[in-house]
Design a protein around this nucleic acid. Structure first.
Length: 272
DNA sequence: CATCTTGTTACGTT
DNA sequence: AAACGTAACAAGAT
């Protein structure tokens, strides 16, 4: 479930524990979220460490602790972070719990597609450092977008937007929202976009990412009225602009909702 | 009960 | 060598 803004929302759920020591770590070796990880070492090295700060990049989360300890989290499809009272008893899907004096920091993930990483080193771990720059950053230029689309020219634009190496944080609902606003058919090949269409896509990417961060990341409220978000999951949902019935189909293996009126090749697009 | 899912990755093919 | 398409992973909702 969590995309860009939801991930940022969950990151902040642990902010209340900043500056405080981890007294005890609850983690069960063998749970899927710990795949490839030495859980005993994580427990040992995080115990006694002070949680200092955290950051989100796309769907990736990195929590820093004193003593050069780094905890990486990915929330997968159903992951959530929360702060609970210090006497919290973990349930079946509470895979990692960091106990502090005043609270418990909980990582909960029923579907177990999420992932925990851990590193003990003076600089941020390599997997973090090599993440692409944010869509809302200065580095995300139209030229960079165009070259990414060229590299994946045979792939439909919808699954292209889901590639985290190019569009960090974009998930299924954001991709549909972005294409709708850019006026692009989701099945178009990434390499088939004209200059104007690339420009529209770039603007739409920035608009949707900024909007999602502003509206969703602080309190998990829904995006504003008029966003496709509100219509896309209802069968028979209507385009917020033209009230056309949305098409729902699987594209690149994911359910896609789109407006056959707005998202047509002959139209200039830009339903802002 | 069958089918669906807002994410990623492994694997075989192009 | 890269890019591409598909299946697989798991559990809960409908």
């Amino acid at each position: 479930m969590p995309e860009l803004a939801e991930v940022e929302y969950y990151r902040k759920r642990w902010d209340c524990g900043r500056g405080e020591e981890i007294l005890r770590v609850q983690a069960h070796h063998g749970k899927r979220v710990f795949r490839g990880l030495a859980v005993a070492q994580l427990k040992k090295e995080l115990t006694g460490a002070v949680f200092t700060r955290s950051e989100a990049r796309g769907k990736q989360l990195l929590f820093r602790f004193s003593g050069d300890r780094w905890l990486g989290l990915h929330l997968g499809m159903t992951g959530k972070l929360s702060a609970a009272p210090p006497d919290f008893h973990p349930g079946k899907h509470d895979h990692l719990v960091l106990y502090q004096r005043a609270r418990a920091l909980v990582f909960h993930d029923p579907r177990v597609f999420g992932r925990v990483r851990f590193a003990s080193q003076s600089t941020a771990p390599p997997w973090w450092e090599s993440l692409p720059s944010a869509i809302t950053s200065r580095e995300f230029t139209r030229q960079r977008l165009a070259s990414f689309l060229r590299r994946h020219r045979k792939l439909s634009i919808k699954p292209t937007l889901l590639l985290q190496s190019g569009f960090p944080g974009v998930g299924n609902w954001m991709a549909d929202e972005i294409l709708w606003r850019a006026g692009l058919e989701p099945r178009r090949a990434a390499g088939s976009l004209s200059g104007n269409e690339v420009r529209a896509l770039w603007r739409s990417l920035r608009f949707v990412c900024r909007g999602a961060m502003n509206h969703v990341s602080t309190d998990f409220s829904d995006p504003p009225r008029g966003w496709l978000f509100h219509a896309r999951w209802k069968p028979g949902g209507h385009c917020p602009i033209h009230h056309t019935v949305l098409v729902r189909e699987s594209i690149g293996g994911r359910t896609t909702a789109w407006c056959p009126h707005c998202q047509r090749r002959a139209l200039p697009g830009l339903c802002f």
